[in-house]
């Protein structure tokens, strides 16, 4: 089965990294096929940014995401752009502090995860993307928690492993609290 995931926000939030970690988890630690592609503006920081992941048991030919099963969104601009383009019964995970204005979305499950706030409480706003990955694992059945953890450890800068795993666990707990609610 082909699963499509889109991460979207602005440059500097670690959107592209989120996609790379997710795809690496699927590919190297969960023995599936995975491709990550990206789109960003020339300004790099602050511009619109998205990162897309396709995961499948079969070989992946077309590597881009058309209509995703899961949207993880961290900016108002990206929300306005992509929120109404998610598969029926799909999942939207959003950071409510970054997205003050929401629209009425039909036929999707919407989960609000204050990832930026949680990251700030951990002392580094920069790990908000990893908080989101924790929530993503808790709220979807796409990937195993351990596979994602392995991929985080392999893809974050040396010396930041502890902080990132803490961020991941916080996001996971928050996600679990939403899914059981």
């Amino acid at each position: 089965m082909r699963v499509e995931i889109r991460f979207a926000g602005f440059g500097g939030q670690g959107i592209i990294k989120s996609g790379i970690i997710t795809a690496a988890a699927a590919c190297l630690y969960a023995q599936k096929n995975a491709v990550q592609t990206q789109s960003y503006g020339p300004e790099s920081r602050g511009g619109a940014c998205k990162s897309e992941v396709v995961i499948s048991e079969e070989e992946i030919d077309f590597p881009k995401v058309d209509v995703p099963d899961v949207l993880v969104v961290m900016s108002q601009h990206a929300y306005n752009e992509y929120a109404d383009n998610v598969k029926e019964n799909g999942t939207v995970i959003l950071d409510p502090d970054m997205i003050p204005v929401e629209m009425a979305l039909k036929n999707v499950k919407v989960f609000k995860v204050p990832a930026t706030k949680i990251a700030e409480e951990l002392g580094r706003k920069i790990v908000a993307n990893i908080v989101m990955l924790g929530a993503f694992v808790a709220l979807t059945n796409v990937l195993d928690k351990d596979a994602l953890k392995e991929a985080i450890l392999a893809n974050v800068p040396k010396g930041t492993e502890e902080l990132n795993i803490k961020a991941f666990e916080k996001g996971y707990e928050y996600g679990k609290s939403l899914s059981s609610a």
Partner: peptide, 9 residues
Amino acid sequence: EIVAHMYEK
């Protein structure tokens, strides 16, 4: 650009 920036096994 896609082949260059895309991550794959």
